[in-house]
């Protein structure tokens, strides 16, 4: 019984992976000669096996669903977009249906020329609208069928439809910057205003 305490310590350190080669050899040699410690060591290893056997412990099969259903509602726009992508046929039908009653489609097709929501103090070069350095646009800015380069600042949201935001390091937008480049997104952009109420209703 006298040898036990010291070697039990060694056993635990061994099980934690904390022994150096020398100590490990010391433990090994002792275990070969001491039946009592050998037994103790076997029991410890057996205990670990028992504690690690927990694969039978599983949550209910619908656990993930239950969690997802209890999450607070995400931002609406993302869930709509994903729903549309997951249901392409219904989406296509819905788009067609809505297009029949709106001017969205024609607006997309016919409105091929560059337009900008306000032109004051802005430079238009070919297909690029430039907010020059030192110019501050007050309010939201919408550029359609053209690129936008902001060297000055925009005090509001920026929407670029069918164009790109050409980065200029000095430029500054205080609100959100949104780029709408595909018919799908264009549809979404138009839809937001037209049928906001319908979707707010159906998503409940």
């Amino acid at each position: 019984m006298t040898c036990k305490k010291e070697f039990i310590q060694l056993m635990h350190h061994y099980l934690d992976g904390d022994l150096n080669k020398e100590e490990e050899q010391q433990l090994r040699t002792h275990l070969q000669s001491c039946k009592e410690c050998q037994n103790h060591f076997q029991e410890l290893k057996r205990t670990i096996t028992l504690l690690e056997s927990n694969s039978h412990l599983q949550p209910s099969p619908n656990f993930t669903n239950k969690v997802i259903n209890s999450l607070p509602k995400e931002k609406k726009r993302i869930s709509y977009l994903r729903w549309f992508k997951a249901h392409p046929a219904i989406t296509a039908a819905a788009i067609f249906f809505i297009l029949m009653f709106t001017s969205v489609f024609s607006a997309w097709n016919q409105d091929g020329h560059l337009s900008v929501s306000k032109e004051q103090n802005l430079i238009i070069e070919n297909d690029t609208v430039i907010v020059p350095e030192g110019v501050v646009v007050e309010g939201d800015l919408v550029v359609k069928n053209g690129n936008l380069k902001i060297e000055g600042a925009v005090n509001g949201d920026v929407v670029i439809i069918n164009g790109e935001h050409l980065m200029a390091s000095a430029g500054e937008v205080t609100g959100e910057l949104e780029q709408v480049n595909q018919i799908f997104e264009w549809f979404w952009y138009s839809l937001k205003d037209i049928t906001k109420d319908i979707f707010a209703f159906t998503s409940k």
Binding site: I8, Q9, H12, L15, D16, D18, H40, E43, L44, R46, T47, I48, L50, L51
Partner: peptide, 17 residues
């Protein structure tokens, strides 16, 4: 952590032997 693992393991060894 080490102390608690050692003691917990030792207690369970006794109980599960």
């Amino acid at each position: 952590v080490k102390t608690r693992i050692h003691r917990g393991r030792e207690a369970l060894r006794k109980r599960l032997r």
